[in-house]
Amino acid sequence: MDKHHGIAAGIVKAFLWVYCSFAVFILGYILYNSFRPKKDILTNTLGSPSGFTFDNYKKLLVDDKFLRFFLNSVIILVASLLLIVIISSLTSYGIARYSFKLKKAIRVYFLIGLMFPAQLGIVPIFLLMSKLNLVDNLLSVIIVSASSISMPVFMLSNFFAKLPEEIHEAAIIDGAGEWTTFYKIMFPMASPVVFAVCITVSVQIWNQFFLPLIFLTSEKYKTVPLIIMKYTKNLFMTVDSAMAVSILSTVPILILFIIFSNRIIEGVTAGAVKG
């Protein structure tokens, strides 16, 4: 398409460049500080650095075994994300493609999860998990995270509804069952939005704090946000580790995000929609 978008677009783009540079600057600033000794950050906050050190990272990776917490977070993320994508796309498809009596009510029903502070509902879940013997087990966090499908269902059901009805009908006439139609044809077609959902849900799961705090009591099961809290609660005492842990917890997931976000931009299924 056209490469010249006009003056207005040029100004908007210039703003975007400035805005985005600021974000990169912030990340860079954290990165820069993560290599400074604590004494330097505290006593010469803005001055030129007296030296750089890898100690902050060494302390995290070797002494505090950060990788274990990272692995816990990755396990929780991957498992819950997969469950959420499967469950919520099934549910949304069910809501969007079929008409039935309680459709509106069901949509509102699936939104309720966004409307109530989780802290209040935690005791019954805790009792349930403790009966299932899942307290202090990553599975408890995975299951509860995978049940929070309000936002994915809310966003996805619109897109399934928008897919052209003819494709659905054609598939059924071709002899494909409901299930085959769903996962061979409809699901791939909605994939730009499925990816968008994946990305936003991943962020939530990656940053979630309350569930692991309650369910994962042993040090060996703790997740990245809990460890970040360890360094940010007494930010001044541990400002060096806090900077390094921010980088270690941000950069890997950012790289993953770069890989996946390209898929959205390129439009994974542009071909499928046309065909």
Partner: peptide, 23 residues
Amino acid sequence: ILVLVLTLSLLVSMVACGKTSGQ
């Protein structure tokens, strides 16, 4: 790949958690 990772991770987590005692 995702399914493989999931299966593996679930296995790892369950083995790791198996020793934990309940409340």
